[in-house]
Design a protein around this nucleic acid. Structure first.
Lengths: 190, 190
DNA sequence: GTCTATAAGGTGATAGAC
DNA sequence: GTCTATCACCTTATAGAC
C-alpha cells in the first residue's frame, strides 16, 4: 500500500528543507538541491512546479499540525492548564524535521507582506497566539504569547558558547519553563 | 565643518537599510537601491566596494553602540538594577533607523556560520547576553537573557491584529516589562 | 521519471569617458 | 562623483528526447 517506485518527492522536500535551514530560502538554489540528490534540476520540476511550491508544500505540512493543535485547544476550556499543554505540544512539534522548518520560518513571516504564503503563515500563528493570550485584547498578553513562542523557537538554535552536552534536551526544557511562565495570568497564584 | 558637497554615502546607507528591512538582504538589489536614489548602480560602487560593504558599514554603527552599552555595564556592579537599566538602554537603541536594522539582523545572525560578519554580530551579542545572564553558566539564565532581547526585538514588529493606536509606545513599554521580568534572579524577591 | 540543452532574465561588479 | 556600456555569472524555468 502506498508503495511508489520511488520516494523522490519526499527526498526533495527533505533535502530542500535541510538547505533552506542552512542558508535561507533565497540562497538555497535548485542546482544545489539537485546535486545533493544526484539528480538534475529539471527532475525537480517534474515533482514541483516552482521553487516556491517546494517551500509551500513543506510549510503546509507544518501548518496542518498547527491547525490540529489550535483546534484541540478550542475544544478545551480556556484556562491556564490548557495553555501550558498547548506550549508543551508546540514544543514537541519543534523537533527534528520540523525544527529545521521553524528555524527559518520567521524569515518567511517577516518577508514581504504581499507574499501570499507569508500572509497564510501569519494567519495560522495568529490563531495560536489567540489561544495563548487568553481572552481580552491586551497588548501585553498578546506580546507575552508571541515571546513565549519565540522562546521555544530560540531553543532550537544552539548557543555556541555552551557545551554541546547541555544542548537539545536541557535547552528545550528550559525554554518550555520560560514559555510557561510567560503565559501565566498577570498576578500569578502563589 | 565636515561640510561635504554631497551626503550620498549616508543616503545610500539609509535607503539600503530601508530596503534590507523591507525585503531582506538578498532580495534587495543594488539596482533598486540605485533607483530609489535616482542614481545608477555604478555610482554606488564609488562609495562602497561591494554590496556586503554597504551592509557591513551600517551594522558596524550598531555594533559600536552595543559595545558602548556592554562597556558601561561592565563598569557597574553586577546586580539586577544594572541589568534592568541595560534592557532599558537596549530598548531605546531599537528606535527609528536602528529598529529597521534590528528587524533583519537576526537573519544575518542565523546565516551561514562561516560568514565573517555573522560571526562578528554573534560575538557582540554574546557579550550583551553575558551581562544580562549574570554570573554562572546556567543554560536557563542565558536563554532567559536571549529571550528578553528577542522580546524587545519583537516589539519593533507590528502586530497586524492590533489597533495601530496601541502600536509603538504601548508595545515597546510592554516588551520592556516582559524583558525585565525575564532577567530577574530565579526566586524573585517579594 | 529522469535526462540534455537551452532559454530568458536578473545579479554583482568593472572599465573608462566626462 | 557620476555616468554609459558591458561582463561574466548564476538563477529559475521550459522543451523535448529517452
Amino acid at each position: 500500500m502506498d508503495q511508489r517506485r520511488t520516494d523522490t518527492r519526499e527526498q526533495i522536500q527533505s533535502v530542500a528543507l535541510e538547505l533552506f535551514a542552512e542558508k535561507g530560502y533565497d540562497r538555497a538554489s535548485l542546482r544545489e538541491i539537485a546535486e545533493r540528490l544526484h539528480v538534475t534540476k529539471a527532475a525537480l520540476y517534474y515533482h514541483f512546479r516552482t521553487k516556491d511550491d517546494i517551500l509551500a508544500s513543506v510549510i503546509e505540512d507544518f501548518l496542518l499540525q498547527l491547525d490540529a493543535l489550535v483546534k484541540w485547544a478550542h475544544e478545551q476550556p480556556s484556562d491556564v492548564d490548557v495553555r501550558e499543554e498547548v506550549l508543551r505540544r508546540y514544543s514537541a512539534l519543534l523537533t527534528g524535521r520540523t525544527a529545521q522548518l521553524a528555524r527559518f520560518m520567521r524569515e518567511g513571516m517577516a518577508k514581504i507582506p504581499e507574499l501570499a504564503l507569508g500572509m497564510k503563515i501569519r494567519a495560522h500563528f495568529a490563531a495560536l497566539i489567540d489561544v495563548l493570550a487568553g481572552p481580552g485584547e491586551h497588548t501585553e498578553d498578546r506580546l507575552r504569547a508571541q515571546v513565549a513562542l519565540a522562546a521555544l523557537q530560540l531553543a532550537t538554535l544552539s548557543d555556541p558558547d555552551l557545551e554541546p552536552a547541555d544542548d537539545e534536551t536541557d535547552r528545550r526544557a528550559a525554554a518550555l519553563r520560560i514559555a510557561t511562565d510567560l503565559v501565566q495570568p498577570s498576578p500569578p497564584a502563589p
